[in-house]
Design a protein around this nucleic acid. Sequence first.
DNA 1: TTATTGATTGACT
DNA 2: GTCAATCAATAAA
Length: 198
Amino acid sequence: MTAKLPRSFYLQDTVTVARSLLGCVLWRRIGRELLAARLVEVEAYLGANDSASHARRGLRSARNESMYLEGGHAYVYFTYGMHWCLNVVTAEGDIAEAVLLRAAEPLRGIETMRERRSKAKRDRDLMNGPAKLCSAMAVGKSLDGEPLDGNALWLTARDQAVNEDDIAVSHRIGVENSGESAHWPLRFFIRGNPYVSR
DNA sequence: TTATTGATTGACT
DNA sequence: GTCAATCAATAAA
């Protein structure tokens, strides 16, 4: 059993956390059921100065309140009237930085994930998108603001090495109309991995 | 007060 | 490739 990532991991620079999360394993416990997936695609959101962030210009509401928690908590938000997305909060309290978990490779509990994601035709379609990842792992409002070293949701270190050269970088997805930060290189994914969203 | 817009997905042409 | 679903936060009036 691999140890849960310590709180100090999430207090590093947000881009460092984002890159370091690639290859790490996300765990979800629901009763006796244990699900796991290897992260293959993430995006960094850099708080008040990031025009694509929910916390742009210091915006703060009930919805994004957990973005302002200290690093090591979950920020789960509802979007498009029907989807949930999961972020790993970074930085100290009151600094709204976070990493959006966009795609993962299912490792454990795949049959259960298939039940939750009945529209997925292949295993690679189970978690190749931020809302798909949440659907597969039953992540919703109940986990918003929860610590990431708890009993329902946590992360462990890479189960296999990831070379820096294998980390590809691009602009973030779905933020084309969000102003000057739209082109910032804050999406990180494992080059060539079949489980990335695109 | 009303209108617009999503950190998306899946169905359809 | 286009587009509807569906609702909350924000922007506009």
